[in-house]
Design a protein around this nucleic acid. Structure first.
Length: 483
DNA sequence: TGGCATT
C-alpha cells in the first residue's frame, strides 16, 4: 500500500464523497457488495464516526484495512488543517451500513492504541451526528413561565427528555429555555408549529423556537460578544467620539463619500458632513474636541496614571491580541471582525480574503491604539472592566428614544452619532425580524442624565438627508399601564 | 418606545 501515491488515494476517497449527492436513501440494501465498491451507497441511518488518536503518518489508504474489517466503507476522510494541509490526527468515517459503525465502535473505541500514540483510539459518532439536533432553544418566553409551563407547551410534539429555563444569578428567568426531545423529528415538529406562533404576555416579540447552538457556535457567539464589548474602543468610534479630531472626521467623510456611486452620499458621510458643520456651530472651534457640555465621563481631578508598561497596545480590556489561526479552522479574528466591527471597512478594498482583511484590520487597530490609549487612560484610571451585556438600561433620565433615523443606520452608526455627548452604554436600532430592515428608530442609553439632556438639546431636530431626528427621553416601560 | 437570551 505504500506504493500508492497520495494522488491516487485522494482520487478514490474524493470519488466516494462526490457521489453522495443525489443518491436516493434506502436502496443500499439492494446493492451488491461489488457495486458498492464503485458507487458507494449508505444506509439512510448511517452514522458518521469520528476517529481520534490516529498517528499522523497514517493516511486514508493506511487506515482503510483497519476499518474495513467491520464492513464496507462509504467514506473515509483524514482531517487536515485548512491552511497548512497538515494531518490533524483524526478522521471521519462513514460505513455503508449503520451496523458496521456500531460494530467498529464496540470493537475499537478505547480498545487499542495505535503505534506511537499515548492514548487509545477514539471511535464514536461525530459531533455532527449527536449535535443538539434534538435540543431546542426557546426564546421570548414570559419571564414568569416555569419549567412545567414550557413542558405543557412542547409536550404534544414528542417526549421531552429535558426542559430547563435559563436563569440569571438571581434566579430570575432570562425568558428563554432549552427543550430536548428524544428525536430530531420531534424537535423539528415543535419548531414548525411553535416558532413565531404566539407572543407571550410581556414578551417583546413572538416565540422563538430553534435548534440550540452547538459548542462550536457557542464559541463563536462568545467571541462576537467579546468583540461587541470592545465597541467603544474601536477606532471608528473614537474618530467620531468625544475625543475625535476634526481632521479625522474630515478624512472619514471624504473616504465614505468617495465610496458612494453615482452621486449617492452614504448616510454616514452625509452625517459626518452635517456633524462637522453642526459641531463647528456649537463649539465655535472646529478643531476643538467634541466634548459634551455636561462634564462627560472624565472624573474631575483625576490625572492620567503613570503607565510603566503597556505590554501590547491591544492587551487592555482583556483582549491580548490576535490569536493564531485555530486548528479547527475557525480563526477567532475572523469571527470578530466579520461581526460588523471592521475597524476600517473601506480601506482594504483589494484584500479579498476575509482572513487577510482581519489581519489587516488588527494591524491598523494596533497602530491606531497607542494614541487612543492615552485618551482612554484619562477617562479610566484603571483598565475598564468588561461590562456585562445584560446591564444595558441606563439610569432614569439617561435613555433616549430616537426616531427618523436613516434606513441604513445600525447600532454602530447610532452609537457614533451620540458618543460626542457622553458615555454611551448602549445603542440599539429596532429591526423588523421578518425583513431584517431597520424600523428607523432606536434607543441610546447614557450613564448620566446630563449627557442625555445634552444629546436632546443638540440632536433633536438634527437634519440628516431629508429627515429630521426626533430625540427625546424614552418612555418608561410601564407608562401606559393604568396602575 | 428594547433589553432578542445559548446550559
Amino acid at each position: 500500500m505504500a506504493t500508492l501515491t497520495n494522488g491516487q488515494v485522494d482520487a478514490v476517497v474524493h470519488g466516494g464523497a462526490a457521489s453522495t449527492n443525489g443518491l436516493v436513501n434506502g436502496i443500499s440494501h439492494t446493492h451488491s457488495p461489488a457495486s458498492c465498491a464503485t458507487i458507494p451507497m449508505k444506509d439512510h441511518d448511517a452514522i458518521k464516526l469520528f476517529i481520534g488518536q490516529i498517528p499522523r503518518n497514517l493516511d486514508e489508504k493506511d487506515l482503510r484495512p483497519l476499518f474495513e474489517e467491520f464492513g464496507k466503507i462509504y467514506e473515509l476522510t483524514v482531517l487536515k488543517d485548512r491552511f497548512t494541509g497538515m494531518h490533524k490526527g483524526c478522521a471521519f468515517l462513514t460505513y455503508c451500513a449503520r451496523e458496521s459503525a456500531l460494530k467498529a465502535q464496540t470493537a475499537l473505541h478505547e480498545q487499542k492504541t495505535l503505534p506511537g500514540m499515548n492514548r487509545p483510539i477514539q471511535v464514536k459518532p461525530a459531533d455532527s451526528e449527536s449535535r443538539g439536533d434534538r435540543k431546542l432553544f426557546v426564546g421570548m418566553l414570559n419571564k414568569q413561565q416555569c419549567e412545567d409551563d414550557v413542558r405543557r407547551l412542547f409536550e404534544s410534539f414528542g417526549s421531552i427528555e429535558e426542559c430547563t429555563i435559563l436563569r440569571g444569578p438571581d434566579g430570575n428567568s432570562k425568558g428563554c429555555a432549552f427543550v430536548k426531545y428524544s428525536t430530531h423529528a420531534e424537535a423539528q415538529a415543535a419548531i414548525s408549529t411553535l416558532h413565531g406562533s404566539q407572543t407571550m404576555p410581556g414578551a417583546s416579540s413572538s416565540l422563538v423556537v430553534k435548534f440550540a447552538d452547538t459548542d462550536k457556535e457557542r464559541t463563536i457567539r462568545r467571541m462576537q460578544q467579546m468583540a461587541g464589548q470592545m465597541g467603544i474602543f474601536n477606532p471608528m468610534a473614537l474618530q467620531f467620539g468625544a475625543y475625535g479630531a476634526y481632521a479625522q472626521v474630515q478624512q472619514q467623510a471624504a473616504l465614505m463619500a468617495s465610496v458612494g456611486q453615482g452621486g449617492y452620499l452614504s448616510p454616514m458621510a452625509a452625517f459626518a458632513a452635517a456633524q462637522m458643520q453642526h459641531m463647528a456651530t456649537i463649539n465655535g472651534l472646529p478643531g476643538a474636541p467634541m466634548t459634551p457640555t455636561s462634564g462627560g465621563s472624565t472624573p474631575p481631578g483625576i490625572t492620567a496614571p503613570t503607565v510603566t508598561s503597556i505590554p501590547s497596545p491591544i492587551s487592555v480590556n482583556g483582549f491580548t491580541g490576535l490569536p493564531p489561526p485555530q486548528a479547527n479552522g475557525q480563526p477567532p479574528a475572523e469571527a470578530m471582525f466579520t461581526n460588523g466591527i471592521h475597524p476600517y471597512p473601506a480601506q482594504s478594498p483589494t484584500a479579498a480574503d476575509p482572513l487577510q482583511q482581519a489581519y489587516a484590520g488588527v494591524q491598523q487597530y494596533a497602530a491606531a491604539f497607542p494614541a487612543a490609549y492615552g485618551q482612554i487612560s484619562q477617562a479610566f484610571p484603571q483598565p475598564p472592566p468588561i461590562i456585562p451585556q445584560q446591564q444595558r438600561e441606563g439610569p432614569e433620565g439617561c435613555n433616549l428614544f430616537i426616531y427618523h433615523l436613516p434606513q441604513e443606520f445600525g447600532d454602530g452608526e447610532l452609537m457614533q452619532m451620540f458618543l460626542p455627548f457622553g458615555n454611551v452604554i448602549s445603542s440599539k436600532v429596532f429591526v423588523d425580524r421578518a425583513t431584517n430592515q431597520s424600523k428607523c428608530f432606536g434607543f441610546v442609553s447614557f450613564d448620566n442624565p446630563g449627557s442625555a439632556q445634552a444629546a436632546i438639546q443638540s440632536m433633536n431636530g438634527f437634519q440628516i438627508g431629508m429627515k429630521r431626528l426626533k430625540v427625546q427621553l424614552k418612555r418608561p416601560k410601564d407608562a401606559n399601564r393604568p396602575y
